[in-house]
């Protein structure tokens, strides 16, 4: 198995899973027309957990995390995020969305705004933070993702890795309690993947509750406390990373691991 090399050993001192429940999904089902994409999903995420969701493409892993901030609607079952149940009530949806950060495969920065404006927009308009304060927070997070010098540029002037780090900083500016990552490194050149993963590891080290859809198994081993394997719209197996990778139980998981790990 290929082991990733990171600049530093991952510091697990702040990665503590509390008893408090961050996300509770019970008996959740979703259909696209007649196609049953998510089947009886049950998942409880505690505060401080770092969960990696893996699985073949089309297995419903992106759809599942997109249900958590209601970018996708579920048709039956319950999703409770930070104590708020997701229903068609728009007020609740906006409330959940402002507490849950999301990072997309294709970054989705706003190309007509500068990096700084991308970061301050939601705090100013959703949280009603004064502009000065929002800019200070934005600069703090830009320092954190190590690109403060790009603040006045536009997204089109940045590399893919830099754009994705800006996207992470943009989410963090809303001071979210939970972060969702939807294949954050899949659209990046290999040499840029590491800079984004380093940022995510840093976030994990600070105790952020994270759900990551990713194919970066090295990241899963280094950071995750739980790996979930999905196939055909259902959760097939979940375990701690060590047992998941070294002692997979189901045939689907074994097959998947042998394919992506390659040797």
């Amino acid at each position: 198995m290929s082991e990733p090399s990171y600049d530093h050993a991952v510091d697990r001192s702040h990665m503590q899973v509390s008893d408090e429940i961050a996300i509770q999904i019970s008996q959740m089902n979703k259909w696209y027309g007649q196609f049953h994409v998510l089947r009886d999903i049950n998942l409880t995420v505690h505060r401080g957990e770092r969960i990696v969701i893996a699985g073949p493409s089309g297995s419903g892993k992106s759809t599942m995390i997109r249900c958590i901030n209601r970018l996708e609607e579920h048709q039956s079952g319950k999703i409770i995020v930070d104590g708020i149940e997701l229903t068609s009530d728009l007020k609740n949806i906006d409330k959940v969305r402002s507490e849950v950060g999301m990072v997309f495969q294709h970054f989705n920065l706003f190309p007509h705004l500068t990096i700084l404006e991308n970061l301050t927009l939601a705090p100013i308009w959703v949280r009603k933070v004064p502009r000065r304060e929002a800019e200070e927070t934005a600069m703090y997070y830009l320092e954190k993702v190590k690109i403060p010098e790009q603040a006045q540029k536009y997204p089109g002037q940045l590399s893919g890795g830099q754009q994705q780090r800006v996207a992470i900083a943009r989410s963090l500016c809303m001071k979210p309690k939970i972060m969702l990552f939807d294949e954050p490194t899949s659209a990046l050149d290999p040499e840029m993947i590491k800079e984004v993963l380093d940022t995510m590891i840093q976030l994990a080290e600070e105790g952020m509750t994270m759900l990551c859809v990713t194919h970066e198994m090295g990241f899963a081993q280094a950071v995750a406390n739980r790996v979930i394997f999905m196939a055909d719209g259902q959760i097939v197996e979940q375990n701690n990373p060590h047992d998941f990778f070294h002692n997979p139980q189901s045939e689907r998981t074994k097959q998947f691991l042998s394919q992506i790990l390659g040797h």
């Binding site: 409330k95 969305r97 950060g101 997309f104 927009l121 308009w125 989410s171």
Partner: peptide, 25 residues
């Protein structure tokens, strides 16, 4: 579509998203 999704994911409401993100572009 990602522009709408990013605006939604940040918690902007419909009119804010239209005015700040969608319409300018």
């Amino acid at each position: 579509r990602g522009q709408y999704e990013a605006a939604d994911a940040l918690g902007l409401d419909y009119w804010q998203a239209q005015r700040l993100i969608i319409m300018p572009q």
